[in-house]
């Protein structure tokens, strides 16, 4: 080990590497702040009388893409996978592609379940349910009045 590369040896490459780390940090911070801004936008939209559902869904899609960008920077810069041999990065990256199928399949499964729940398509007849646990005409129990504040 040569003298300049030990204690506090700051070569050109070292400085460049540290710069790259901080750059990744700033990118992550900006992406997180963007996500927050979009999240608060959704909150604002939902406060309104007639929330625009498709707009909210679109904003959520944008947030998902920003999250994937954050994941990319963490994996490639902080975990140095971008600097590894390509074949090795592939043994990590290719199995992760299974997630694409995984997400699509199970989200579709959930939607199908909701469809069965809300229609006659399932094995049982659909009965329109009032708002769950909602008993508008039920006379309130005496005890509950005390808890009202």
């Amino acid at each position: 080990m040569s003298a300049e590369s030990t204690h506090l040896g700051t070569t050109e490459a070292d400085i460049a590497h540290v710069k790259r780390i901080w750059k990744a940090f700033w990118i992550l911070l900006v992406l997180t702040i963007l996500e927050l801004a979009l999240g608060l936008t959704i909150y604002r939209i939902d406060l309104g009388a007639n929330p625009n559902e498709s707009l909210v869904l679109m904003i959520k899609g944008v947030i998902c893409i920003l999250t994937l960008a954050k994941a990319f920077y963490i994996i490639s810069i902080f975990m140095h996978l971008g600097d590894e041999v390509r074949a090795m990065a592939m043994t990590i990256g290719l199995p992760a592609l299974l997630f694409i199928w995984f997400i699509i399949a199970f989200i579709a499964e959930g939607s199908s379940y909701r469809h069965l729940r809300n229609t006659d398509a399932g094995i049982r007849q659909y009965k329109e349910q009032p708002q769950q646990f909602h008993h508008p005409s039920a006379e309130p129990a005496e005890k509950s009045d005390k808890k009202l504040d």
Partner: peptide, 27 residues
Amino acid sequence: MWYFLISDSFTFGAFLISYGSIRFSLN
């Protein structure tokens, strides 16, 4: 360590996707 992490990511993935699936199935 990398291979452990990819397996761990599938554990978390399974949890989160199961959560998503249930969420999509409810009104």
